[in-house]
Design a protein around this nucleic acid. Structure first.
Lengths: 235, 235
DNA sequence: TCAAAAGTGTTCGAATTACACCCATGG
DNA sequence: CCATGGGTGTAATTCGAACACTTTTGA
């Protein structure tokens, strides 16, 4: 096979920043690395790209291996490329961020890996440049979620408006007026009110809503501003 | 040196989508590829990453080699990774998009490469997946420019409001009311009116403006909506 | 009966849009 | 003197922010 002469070939790895929401706060799924270097240190879930995979496919495979989930929201973030980011051998790391319904994970958890959810403001020291990746993913999540309706990916199929608001408030570390919030959210017609209420988190109970899936998919790229003063919150 | 066993090492290339604005329309700088495969076909400017460079550095180097310019606006777009995107050998292509003042280029043009500016709606067939890259870059440029003041990177140090408006109208293929546009732009206080006028493009002449650099840099991440109905224009 | 959270409407100010006329100049 | 493009102001509307009380229920 003819090849490009005189060029260096290097490893390409994928690292997944996996976000989940437990109803109260945003969490990150980390694993204890099972091999050297940095064995047993906390790390993002990752792996090397294989010869016949593209990056998206590889990222999905990696995510599936850890969580058992398929069809997860996954988005390429950025390639990290400092020559010495991996001390063992030059590796380009392509970061992906994923949003999953944390409850689905709890059921299907794989036991191949030592994995654990960490609250976002309590992340342990990570290997290599993974902390940089997490920081960028956080920023990108805020950015994207301020403009597009992606946070539904973090919620179960049925959720209440207070839960949704809680999620937005957590991500932007701000408080939102519930009257304005519910009006804005409902005005998109993206949610379908269910007859049942969630009676667990309050005495009065809060109505469940489901996504109107066709409309949701159609509006995925649309701009939906659910939070007040988005620009002020995106430093 | 200890290494990761059993993994495939692959080539990593950078491809630059270089935008320029000639006062009338948005253009793309392409080169005729000087080596096989696809020799003499039109292509994005690119190159392989070198052992001690990170991607940003490599992209800057590549851009500088073609244009002679430094300090150019450059942003990582995405990694392209279909296994057969380069028929000769597996290569990951990391796309960068650059915004340059086309007039600076005209002076410093390098003659090492057969390079040519193409109007965006008249792009020739490109090698590999470069057309995909261009399409994504166009989309990203629209997206980003709808929210942030990056289009100034395409203009010379002194420019007029009609020129600026022309640029926005070209990128979004829309028409903007000049009264509303100038009010919006000037309300940011980002522009400093110059005493001289551009007498070339009209009889009456249009005042030149310069960027207030400190304010511009400060507001680089800020949200500035210069175009009406941004969401409608970003399909 | 009380505490806790859910649900709902109105008012005000700011921002956005639509729109039309006069000005300066070169030919 | 006229054609061309530059420059400017106002009114109407829409959108977003602020804000308080009633309801339901479990303890």
């Amino acid at each position: 096979m003819v090849r490009y002469g005189g060029q260096t070939r290097i490893l390409v790895a994928i690292d997944c920043i996996i976000f989940g929401f437990d109803g109260n706060e945003l969490k990150l799924l980390l694993i204890q690395r099972g091999f050297e270097p940095e064995k047993l240190k906390w790390s993002l879930m990752g792996g090397f790209i294989q010869p016949n995979e593209n990056l998206d496919y590889a990222a999905n495979t990696i995510l599936n291996k850890l969580t058992g989930l398929e069809g997860v929201y996954l988005e390429q973030l950025q390639a990290f490329s400092e020559p010495n980011r991996d001390p063992l051998e030059r590796t380009i790391g392509v970061a992906y961020f994923a949003l999953i319904d944390i409850h689905k994970y709890e059921i299907q958890i794989s036991h191949e890996y030592q994995a654990e959810w960490f609250s976002l403001n309590n992340i342990p020291e990570l290997i290599f440049d993974h902390s940089l990746m997490v920081a960028l993913a956080k920023k990108q999540l805020r950015y994207k979620a301020a403009l597009h309706p992606i946070l539904f990916e973090l919620l179960p199929g049925k959720f209440t408006l207070p839960q949704l608001q809680n999620l937005y408030e957590g991500i932007y570390e701000t408080e939102i007026d519930k009257r304005n919030f519910s009006r804005k959210v409902l005005s998109t017609k993206l949610l379908i009110k269910q007859p049942e209420k969630d009676m667990v988190n309050s005495k009065k109970g809060a109505y469940y809503y489901k996504l109107d899936m066709p409309k949701y998919i159609e509006n995925f790229q649309a701009f939906l501003y659910f939070i007040p003063n988005p620009q002020a919150l995106l430093g």
